[in-house]
Amino acid sequence: MSYVMERAMDRSPAGGAQRYLGAVQAGPRFCDLLSGVRRYLVHSVFARAINLWDGQEFLTLLPLSRGCGATWATVAVAPGESFLDFGLAPGLEVEARSGRWVRLGPEVVVDFGSALAWESKLAAVAVGDVRETHLRALLDTLLRAPAPSPIRGAIDGNGGPGRGIVALLDGLRASVQAADGARLGAALGGLVGFGPGLTPSGDDVVAGLCLARAVMRKACGKPDGFWEDAVREALGRTHALSGFLVREALGGRSHEFAEDALYHLLAGGPRETAHGATRLVSIGATSGFDMGVGIYLAAEWQRRYAWCSSG
């Protein structure tokens, strides 16, 4: 048995760190960080998430079992542990060493040496017709979720406070079909940056729409169009991290749970779709739910109006 305590010394790559975390899974974008191609700073720290950014792009670290993604990585920490206790602060420079160690701050090192590569299931998905059974499973899961989202009115058939939202979402659908740029811009303007949550509900529903649309368009070889340009333009209204996630969704990339929910909707069975949706709505207070609504609406509109293929 061997115990190497070199970490207490300054000489090892992980020198001096109080916490030495193992990265379990990491998305492909972490290559940029590990290889030193891009230099990242700590952007924000939450109890169960650490965001890094290079001024444009973000990378996010989550506890194991909270899902991965192209720009996400998971690390092994205990359920009771909070990233807030790791002495991290926004603005700290993130240092990568030997393509393996990432020092987030004076006290924390994350070892990516054994991390499993995260791969998107959506890369090879064959998109056929959207099936109603799957849509139903997704919708039921969303309706059962207790998320306190202002977007809820869009799916539960209740007018109420969601009335304005319903109109805006309907505007998104109709303006794309009618190729009405002014109306689309106005509808996006009412959604982007709107609502509660670290990522506003309006952003999340737009991200869900973008993700589903991007995957379905990619499957039939359609390039970016009218909608994509309008979304990019509207993103100036929201904050950098949320805008980044919507831009990623435009590229067909999102958090693992959103991607899985979409994957099962398009290529799995109804049970998997419901299971995937359950995991999706567990993200944040409303974020997962709102993305789920976006995915649902995009799929529903595609089924009825070929919405994703138009615009």
């Binding site: 061997s2 115990y3 190497v4 970490r7 090892s12 030495y20 193992g22 092994a76 070892d111 054994s114």
Partner: peptide, 21 residues
């Protein structure tokens, strides 16, 4: 806990999560 795995890293008794991947 063998040398191969603990060179330059803490022992799994200190950071059991290093076994997770």
């Amino acid at each position: 806990g063998d040398d191969y795995f603990t060179r330059g890293r803490p022992h799994p008794m200190l950071e059991p999560g290093l076994r997770a991947p």
